[in-house]
Design a protein around this nucleic acid. Sequence first.
DNA 1: AATCCTTTCAACCGCATACAG
DNA 2: TCTGTATGCGGTTGAAAGGAT
Length: 256
Amino acid sequence: MGRAPCCEKMGLKRGPWTPEEDRVLVAHIERHGHSNWRALPKQAGLLRCGKSCRLRWINYLRPDIKRGNFSREEEDAIIQLHQMLGNRWSAIAARLPGRTDNEIKNVWHTHLKKHLEPTKPASQAPKRKPKQQQQQPEAMPTTLEGPTTGAVVPVSPEQSLSTSTTSTTTDYSAAASSMENADTFTSEEEEDYQIDDSFWSETLAMTVDSSDDSGMQTEGSTFGASSAAPSTNEDDMDFWLKLFMQASDMQNLPQI
DNA sequence: AATCCTTTCAACCGCATACAG
DNA sequence: TCTGTATGCGGTTGAAAGGAT
């Protein structure tokens, strides 16, 4: 399989985008769309490779990008979805309107993963306070203000009251314990999260009963074919998400 | 006040996959 | 079917910001 030659480095700019470059890119895409990323920078007069333009648009300039801190609901959704999908950031991002895979990946690695790691001494807690608000790029055109939709995963009303990352000193470790190390959580944690191995085995048994050695792989996309199972990857995810939701209802989980 | 250290996040890199000819 | 190209994706990096000493 031939690999695309990486963007010619000669004369192409790298590094942070300037407000002017952002303006040019946005204006070009608004006028002509982005059917051909490779040709776009040349057409727009940008000294960037198509890949860089695409990334900049997708991760930062798209009109429907939701900026700012992740809400508690979104973080919960990421945690739950990560349990289902693994490091398939784009699949997770598809469930979180306005959020990008890159952003979710960053949040996971810098914020959520820490909470999900086995309980550590308090001295190892992050020392630094989260930023109050993400800075808006000064060049962000007003037309880029997009809809701010909430996380797709429903939560209880009281949970929806907290909306900033700063308020997320919550039960992540408990969630992790219950989901990954079900035998290690405390009774208090147990009350909050009760997803354990039995939960998954029961849940999966509902629909994957006919799968055998065809294998159920951990990343969700290649579960054994059952009669109820979807055929495409996208269907797969919808299917498992719905299943997950239903299972959560059955378990009366506090989240999702 | 200066320096060091940690955290964050935008951007890059390289591989995988889809697709066209 | 094969080959080349474009795009998508996940892992990684490095500069900037800000807290700690």
